[in-house]
Nucleic acid binder design. Structure first.
Length: 271
DNA sequence: CTTTAGGCCTGACGGC
DNA sequence: TGCCGTCAGGCCTAAA
């Protein structure tokens, strides 16, 4: 499922094909996404030129010389560049026809994604207003985590997956960064020391930049916008490895659900 | 304020 | 073989 690295990979892959292109039309084959795609969106968008494709958390922000768009890929969404001759697939819900003859198709089997008009400036949008700092930005470090964690009884893993704390840390990267930082996912956030948060922040940055540089993780139905698969999966140390041996110490990886989310960890390497 | 539970949705999977 | 229950998972909303 698209986590931040996949979204960033999608953004980088699509941006060169979008800049300066005019949206000839938008076809709503199925407007029933997480929130219904407004029926008047095709009319308000048609004829406008794309100025940028940006990312905030796991949202994609499409800026045009008309209305902006806020896109989210949800659990199973992907954006692909196709020609009109490319056979339509089931769950190709939205089709952007561009003035270079290509199409961008939003494919989302589970329809947890969204496509909404984006007001300017984007930060006023309710979905973006309360988001925490970007994990790869200057506002994110161990002291930030330490400061916000005071008084928090929730598990540190749930804490770093809270989008108000830091954005873009999904289940995979939370599990992996906690392993690399040697911290058990179930510990109360307030019990994690300043120094440990420093290491955790470092590992969150490392694991996310790694995944981005390698083109994103492939899990189940995620496919890059150009149809190729990412290849981060073989680097996972704990996520999805329950019952297998820790790559560091050979202890069997355990899985203990935290707030209904699978949470894999090494009982030896993580304390 | 924090924390938890529910809901959205489809495909993969396991059991029968 | 096919049917069906269960689960995954981001993230919002409502409730505790």
């Amino acid at each position: 499922m698209p986590e931040l690295p996949e979204v960033e990979t999608t953004r980088r892959g699509l941006e060169p094909h979008l800049l300066g292109r005019k949206i000839l039309r938008l076809t709503l084959r199925d407007a029933r996404l997480r929130w219904p795609v407004p029926g008047d969106l095709p009319a308000t968008l048609a004829g406008h030129r794309i100025l940028s494709l940006q990312r905030r958390a796991k949202y994609l922000l499409l800026e045009t010389d008309g209305p902006g768009l806020l896109l989210h890929l949800g659990m199973s969404g992907s954006l692909r560049r196709c020609t009109p001759e490319t056979p339509l697939r089931t769950h190709d819900h939205l089709i952007f026809a561009l003035d270079d003859g290509f199409e961008i198709r939003l494919h989302d089997p589970r329809r947890f994604g969204c496509c909404l008009p984006l007001p300017m400036p984007p930060t006023v949008h309710p979905l973006l207003a309360a988001l925490g700092p970007e994990p790869l930005g200057d506002d994110f470090d161990g002291d930030h985590l330490h400061r916000l964690s005071r008084g928090r009884r929730a598990a540190v893993k749930a804490f770093i997956m809270d989008q108000r704390v830091v954005v873009g840390v999904g289940n995979i990267y939370a599990s992996e960064s906690l392993f690399l930082a040697g911290i058990r996912p179930g510990r109360a956030a307030r019990r994690v020391s300043r120094g440990e948060y420093g290491e955790l922040a470092t590992q969150i940055r490392a694991v996310l930049s790694d995944a981005i540089s390698q083109g994103g993780t492939t899990l189940r139905d995620f496919v890059h916008e150009d149809g190729s698969h990412g290849y981060f999966r073989q680097h996972l140390r704990v996520y999805g490895r329950e019952g297998q041996c820790c790559t560091t110490c050979s202890t069997m990886i355990r899985n203990r659900p935290i707030g209904n989310r699978a949470s894999a960890y090494c009982p030896t390497c993580q304390r």
